[in-house]
Design a protein around this nucleic acid. Sequence first.
RNA 1: GCCGGCGUGGCGCAACGGCUAGCGCACUCGACUUGUAAUCGAGCGGUUCCGGGUUCGAAUCCCGGCGUCGGCUCCA
Length: 669
Amino acid sequence: MPADLNLTVDRKPLQVVAGTTAAQALDAAGVRDAVVVRVNGDAQLRDLAYTVAEGDRLEPVPLGSDEGRAVLRHSCAHVLAQAVQDLFPGTALGIGPPITDGFYYDFAPQRPFTPEDLAAIEKRMQQIIKQRQHFARRVVSADAARAEMAAEPFKLELLDLAYGPGSGGGEVSIQAAAEGASMEVGGAEITMYDNLLLPKDAPPQRVWTDLCRGPHLPTTRDIPAFSLTRSAAAYWRGSEKNPQLQRIYGTAWESREALKAHLAKVAEAERRDHRKLGAELDLFSFPDEIGSGLAVFHPKGGVVRREMEEYSRRRHIEAGYEFVYTPHITKGDLFETSGHLGWYADGMFPPMHVDGGDYYLKPMNCPFHNLIFAARGRSYRELPLRLFEFGTVYRYEKSGVVHGLTRVRGMTQDDAHIYCTREQMRDELASLLTFVLDLLSDYGLDDFYLELSTKDPDKFVGSDQDWDDATRTLAEVARASGLELVDDPGGAAFYGPKISVQARDALGRSWQMSTIQLDFNLPQLFELEYQASDGSRQRPVMIHRALFGSVERFFAVLLEHYAGAFPAWLAPVQVVGIPIAAEHVDYLREVAQALVAEGIRVEVDASDERMQKKIRTAQQQKVPYMLIAGDTDVGAGAVSFRYRDGTQKNGVPVADAVAEIVEAVRTRG
RNA sequence: GCCGGCGUGGCGCAACGGCUAGCGCACUCGACUUGUAAUCGAGCGGUUCCGGGUUCGAAUCCCGGCGUCGGCUCCA
């Protein structure tokens, strides 16, 4: 008989018999909802089939936790792969990791998958789940693994990457070599996962096997809810140079309700897609005749954009920015000096040959601002010098990447460059971050976190001293904001560290908004100087910053954030007057005049339609205020409100109605 | 750029390789004059993305291009 063992389950000491599995131990401890377990605080989780040892400390991981979901999703990926190989024998496997909200698995099929294939695969997966196949872990030698995976060229490649070609050991983590493949291999032992059927009165039957690090749910039956979402091509190991595999994406959740909630959220995101709303609300379009990634703003979109820009402009003036204007094209020399032609020529539109020289559309504004700085001698008394421009830039985005207003080939940046002394840097950055967050919240975004991108040790210019100073200053300023700060080591551009402000929208999606970037490179390349109080010539520090990123992109984010129902100050039409009958039109026009006098954007719907239809139209256009007037209102010198949310308020005296609307339109944030 | 899907009036959709390419919204005209989300009728509007091919016959099948969508890669 095995001896008794001491272990700790969920912090409670427990005595069990040697040979006991984690599942049995958890059961003995009364833990019911765990699907995997953490042993002695290890980073890597273990299956419930893990055999406990003397003194082990077991922490149960429930299905609904982030880690539990990852295990669920990865297990679901195995079921997907099994289903695909059942239905399409001979299909080679790539990798199948969990991702945010779901999982995928890559395949090398004879032909791409069709939507009908996905439906059939999903059906097969449901059968596999119903069969209650057990996930069983098995440790093998590298040679044995190669033999078992002889028909899987991609798995063999992973084994070679991780353990060296032809070798039986020499364990190397391949996390860096094959991103996302860490679920497959990596770790001290090579493990295979078998899917076993355990019939009552018959020997276990192995139905499928995958090279995998694990862990997994105990059985396929423990997958409560999943759905396949789409298939698309993806490069093997994420490199353009490698062949493309067919990737099938799915999502899996700890309950049917959680799956339903997730699918509802996806549907809601689709409903408020800015490209769709842009057409429905007549805000902007992308005429084919102009070209890919080049937007035109229609009158209503123009109003929103103008309001966005005007408020920004006003706030920048108050904050001490000076406004400049620079041309859209320039001789190539400028971008030779800045280094952009050397580094980023691929991202620029090809040059126009004029007067024996090459002219380029500008992909950024900084070099122009530098020339303004350098246009005359500068004194320390002028610093910080803050140059602002709504600068339209053009970038040759590859054809497959343009996306609505968020990734375009022509866009307008709310771009500013701040030139200051080293001593001013800290105060300038601190007030800049406050300014950025304050302004973004006025546009209705108020859920932020910050990301600090630091030096890539293999790719940078400037002295270590400069980088350390700048990075420390940025970190201190970021921390002082009290916001969550995420590190992005090595994520900085070669010329300086940066903070980026990430904003979560109404659906909880995060968008990279503003960036604040320090630059040690351009001031040097452009030989920017100012004269210090002691008469010496000094090089200024340069800060690049954009709040919106691009006006177009910010427009899209706000449009999706508000689902088209812009706050009153941004709404293209703020008030629609709706007469009960034709004879009330003139009365409403007078009311409208009073509103126009206050700068309100108001329309009176004098069409032949019925009142109900007019309300419906205004509602669909997401107009914040409807003012309805019939005999009762006219008699009382009043109007009746219908608000965008459907609530109403009757018989409001005209002066009060005007005051209410004027007040609402002034409100931001 | 790569892989796959899609491309039909302004918009959303329909049409086994075979009748005059149909429907809804929008638009125009007429009737109706209405109290908080769709009044009725008539009409206008399409070289079925472009170019080539197969066929007696192409919106439909094939080839190329352009655009777009979903991913991949990229995003100074």
